[in-house]
C-alpha cells in the first residue's frame, strides 16, 4: 500500500464548507477534536469515511475532508455496515445523535453492535431533538419540559451504556464536548479497538437544552459529579479525589477517604470485566437525587470478538478453497442439460 508522502495535519481535514451549527454548540468542539486526532492515526485520508444519519450532528461529514455520506434518519449504522462488509480496509466512522441512533435508528444500532463491525460510532448525546427545534429525545430525562412535552416527558429514557452493553457491544466509552483532552484520548482508543466502538459524547445544545450536562462540566460540581475511570486505577472522585467507590458484593458504595476509610479495597477499574462494566453502566442516577452515584466517563468496557466483515470474508475464502473460484459457465450450465439439434 502507498504511504502518505507528507504527514497530515488537522487542517487537512477541514473542508471548504461553512460550518453551520449554532454558535456555541458543543458540536464544534467535537469536530475540532476529531480533526486533531485523525492525523495521528496514520490512516491515509482517502481511506477514511464518515457516515451520518439526520440531525444536527449528522452534518458532520460535510465538514470533514474525507469521504463522507450524509444518509437518512437513523440508518447511518446500516449504511456503514454494508460499506464495511465490502471494504474492510476502510476506516469507517459513524456520526449520530441520541435521537438518530436510539430512536429512529434503534434497531440498526443494536444489530450493528451484535455483529461487531469494526467501526467507530460517535453518539453526540444532547438529550434533545435540536434540528427539529426542541422536542424531547429518547435520552431526555423523565419530566423534561419541551415543546412536545409541555407537562413533562413521560418517556423513560434510554441509558446508552446499558443499551450498548445489553446489545453485546465490544467497546463502550463516554466522554464530553467540554473535555477536549479526554475526548481526544477516547477517540484514539476507540479507533484502536477492533470492533464496533461506541463513544457516547455529552454534547451541549445551547439553543434547546442548554446546560443539560453542566453538573458534569462546570467547575463547581464537576469533581463531585464525575468519575473518570481508567483500567488499573481505583474509582476515585471528589475534591482532591477524596471519595472512592467500593464494591459490596455487586452493590457499589461511596466511601469517604477523609474519614479514615482505606483506599486499598476500592474498586479497581478493569475495562475487560463485563460484570463490573454492567454495574458501572448503572451509575445513571439523576444528579438531583440524594445519595446518587457520580457519572462515569472513560472506557467502561472492551472485549475482543470476531468482526462480521472478517467472518464474511473468511467464508468467501473458505468457499473458494473448497470449491475453487466460481466458474460462470459451469454455473449457467447447471447439473442437468440436454441438447436439441
Amino acid at each position: 500500500m502507498e504511504t502518505q508522502q507528507a504527514a497530515l495535519s488537522a487542517k487537512d481535514f477541514v473542508t471548504d464548507q461553512d460550518v453551520r451549527w449554532c454558535p456555541g454548540c458543543g458540536d464544534y468542539s467535537i469536530l475540532k477534536q476529531v480533526q486533531t486526532v485523525l492525523p495521528d492515526l496514520g490512516i491515509p485520508r482517502e481511506n477514511i469515511v464518515f457516515v451520518s444519519g439526520i440531525g444536527c450532528s449528522s452534518r458532520f461529514p460535510y465538514y470533514m475532508e474525507t469521504f463522507g455520506m450524509h444518509s437518512i434518519h437513523g440508518r447511518a449504522t446500516a449504511v456503514a455496515s454494508g460499506l464495511k462488509a465490502t471494504r474492510p480496509e476502510l476506516s469507517v466512522w459513524i456520526v449520530s445523535g441520541d435521537g438518530d441512533s436510539m430512536s429512529i435508528g434503534g434497531n440498526h444500532l443494536i444489530h450493528l453492535l451484535r455483529r461487531n463491525f469494526d467501526v467507530n460510532l460517535l453518539i453526540f448525546n444532547n438529550e434533545i431533538y435540536g434540528l427539529t427545534k426542541g422536542q424531547y429525545s429518547p435520552a431526555s430525562p423523565e419530566g423534561k419540559i419541551t415543546k412536545s412535552s409541555p407537562m413533562g416527558s413521560i418517556d423513560h429514557p434510554f441509558n446508552p451504556a446499558a443499551l450498548a452493553l445489553g446489545a453485546d457491544a465490544t467497546f463502550f466509552a463516554r466522554s464530553m464536548d467540554r473535555d477536549p483532552i479526554h475526548l481526544r484520548e477516547i477517540l484514539k482508543r476507540s479507533n484502536a479497538h477492533k470492533g464496533s466502538s461506541v463513544v457516547e459524547i455529552y454534547q451541549n445544545c445551547n439553543v434547546f437544552n442548554d446546560g443539560a450536562f453542566e453538573v458534569f462540566t462546570e467547575k463547581g460540581t464537576k469533581k463531585m459529579e464525575t468519575l473518570f475511570v481508567e483500567t488499573g486505577k481505583p474509582l476515585l472522585f471528589g475534591e482532591g479525589q477524596n471519595k472512592g467507590i467500593k464494591l459490596d458484593g455487586f452493590t457499589p458504595r461511596v466511601v469517604d477517604l477523609t474519614s479514615g476509610e482505606s483506599a486499598n479495597d476500592l474498586w479497581i477499574h478493569d475495562e475487560r470485566d463485563r460484570v463490573k462494566a454492567q454495574i458501572l453502566s448503572r451509575f445513571f442516577d439523576d444528579p438531583k437525587k440524594e445519595n446518587h452515584l457520580p457519572r462515569p466517563f472513560g472506557i467502561f468496557y472492551q472485549e475482543d470478538r470476531f468482526c462480521y466483515e472478517d467472518a464474511l470474508n473468511a467464508q468467501i475464502e473458505d468457499a473458494v478453497k473448497a470449491k475453487g473460484k466460481g466458474d460462470l459457465d459451469a454455473l449457467l450450465r447447471g447439473k442437468n442439460t440436454w441438447s436439441i439439434n
Binding site: E2, T15, P44, R45, E46, N47, I48, V49, P61, Y62, M64, E65, T66, F67, G68, M69, H70, S71, L83, R87, E89, L90
Partner: peptide, 11 residues
C-alpha cells in the same frame, strides 16, 4: 473511497 484525491461528501 480509497481513491486518492477524490475525497467528497454525498447525501
Amino acid at each position: 473511497p480509497g481513491t486518492k484525491g477524490l475525497e467528497h461528501r454525498v447525501g
